[in-house]
């Protein structure tokens, strides 16, 4: 049941004035919240008190707060999106933490995701990878009837599982190698599984992997940290599929 128990936490937050400035941790003690308050709302509460004191609030990315837009990030107590599994930061509630606990909040750490300010990072690299080939090449208006190509339910469901990726970057943040393989493979898989995407599958996978490498993401060493931390539980079987698609495509060159 909803409770009005007040709880207090200490927030140890990374503050950084700009991309080139040097950052550091600042600890805000005894931030009052309740177990039914979300983590981001607790940051809102803290920000409100900072503004009251005339200080600049902590900057962090967030938008839908429904766990779907992929905007929120934050590395909380050693986990991207915090300690809850299968959930984004905006779906994290304070009852996950103990009264009086010190919670460490850091931005995503990866060379490809530079910090813009405080906890906000630039994930533009993900867009660039998608632009390299994450689409089916056809123009609006030219489509045939939607039921003209039957697609097996198994394939459609699996493509859907891959397509569930919200592009938040938790996989990169979790990976000790800063690898984006889970993200890229999810998109490659979705299209590779569907007849619409099959046509240009070889071209797509080569273009997207090349872009990923170019942008300085690391190499996958199959630690499975990405899969364990992914808020949408994207499986690394996607990575195996991408490897397969990529190697086959290259062998045909």
């Amino acid at each position: 049941m909803a409770t009005d128990n007040i709880m207090k936490v200490n927030l140890k937050v990374w503050r950084q004035a700009g991309p080139k400035e040097k950052g550091g941790f600042v600890t805000y003690e005894n931030v009052e919240t309740t177990p039914d308050t979300s983590f981001l709302e607790t940051l809102d509460i803290l920000n409100e008190s900072l503004i009251e004191k005339g200080e600049e609030p902590i900057v962090f990315d967030h938008d839908c707060r429904d766990g779907i837009c992929g905007m929120c990030s934050l590395y909380i107590n050693g986990h991207p999106h915090g300690p809850a599994t299968g959930a984004t930061t905006c779906q994290l509630y304070m009852r996950r933490f103990k009264n009086g606990e010190t919670i460490t909040v850091e931005p995503w750490r990866s060379a490809a995701f530079p910090v813009l300010k405080d906890l906000m990072v630039n994930r533009n690299a993900f867009d660039q990878i998608q632009q390299a080939g994450g689409y089916v090449s056809f123009n609006c208006g030219g489509a045939q009837d939607a039921n003209a190509i039957p697609i097996s339910k198994v394939d459609a469901d699996e493509a859907m599982d891959s397509a569930t990726c919200i592009g938040c970057g938790a996989c990169v943040a979790a990976c000790k190698n800063g690898s984006a393989m889970l993200f890229v493979s999810a998109k490659v898989s979705q299209f590779a599984l569907l007849p619409q995407g099959r046509v240009e599958a070889a071209k797509r996978v080569k273009a997207m992997v090349a872009k990923m490498d170019e942008l300085g993401f690391g190499n996958c060493t199959n630690t499975r940290a990405c899969e364990a931390e992914c808020p949408k539980r994207i499986s690394i079987s996607n990575i195996a599929r991408m490897n397969r698609e990529f190697l086959c495509a290259k062998l045909k060159d």
Binding site: G23, G78, E106, K176, N177, G218
Partner: peptide, 14 residues
């Protein structure tokens, strides 16, 4: 991979 990880490391890892 080290380079891809960036210069700053996480302070708290689990």
């Amino acid at each position: 991979n080290r380079k891809a990880r960036g210069t700053e490391r996480y302070a708290y890892q689990e």
